[in-house]
Amino acid sequence: MRRWIGICVLILTILGLSFVVAANINTLVPTTNVRTLAEIYLKYTYYPWDKYFTAMSPEACTSIVWDFRGLDTVFETMVFYLAIIGAIALARGVPLKLPKEIKRDLGLSLIVKTVTKIVPVLIIAVAGSIALHGHLTPGGGFQGGATAAVAPVLILVVFSQFYLLKRGVNKNSMLLLRSIGLTGIGITAFAAVLIGLATGHYAFVLQNQPKPLAPDVSLPAFVGGQLISGSLWFFNFFEFLAVAAGFTIVFLLITLPEKLAEAKEEKHVVEVEEG
């Protein structure tokens, strides 16, 4: 019975949505034109002829993500941050510490280990490049950070978790790094306002280039002849730190050896919490 209701709902959903798409064939199915708003974004993403109305980044997506609609991205970062905090809260009381004795032969074979000693360096270099060129080419802070987090995963799988913990890559240090990255994002978001307060000029939250109502405050688009697109480079850099650290925490928590986690858990269960 329940199954049949489900199938009926499924068919109705499909029919309804296809009807809507069919009824709005001109607007919901792509044509050779884009919407007016899209043309504005494409035109003004890099438009050095009007310094009051441009994001100064040739990558239209990055300029939307961090400049035109920067607020969304700040709070998207916050969603990710809160999800990781929630995960840590669910794993609280579980020690991410080295056990007293570690068996020497943890992990995979010597060949794999030797290769793995080289590869993470390359991964992090590529990730950094993705993140720091986010305002010029497809990519950006989140993508770079996600790529960088592959390195610790590789080490986790090949060497075991203790290898990372022994070298100081643990929950606390990663949380610290993450917090530094996020604080950087927060400061960059308020950078123009802070500069404005210091120099006595009006400025906007999340402002990048000068604006008609705040012409005196801006973040530099070029540094030493290199295009950094003002706040975009800083956002990408800090997001890179935050995301890489965040993913590392998640992987550390989720690959925790189960026996170790539960032995510690049982001590905690005794005290029943009443809501």
Binding site: V34, A38, I64, T73, E76, F80, A83
Partner: peptide, 28 residues
């Protein structure tokens, strides 16, 4: 000639949010 960048930016945001929610649900 370029495609509309706004949906791509929205999708970037939605992907990260979806990832975050999935991550938390996996821990749950």
């Amino acid at each position: 000639t370029a495609v509309d960048p706004l949906p791509q930016a929205l999708v970037l945001t939605a992907i990260v949010i979806g990832l975050a929610v999935t991550l938390f649900l996996v821990f749950l």
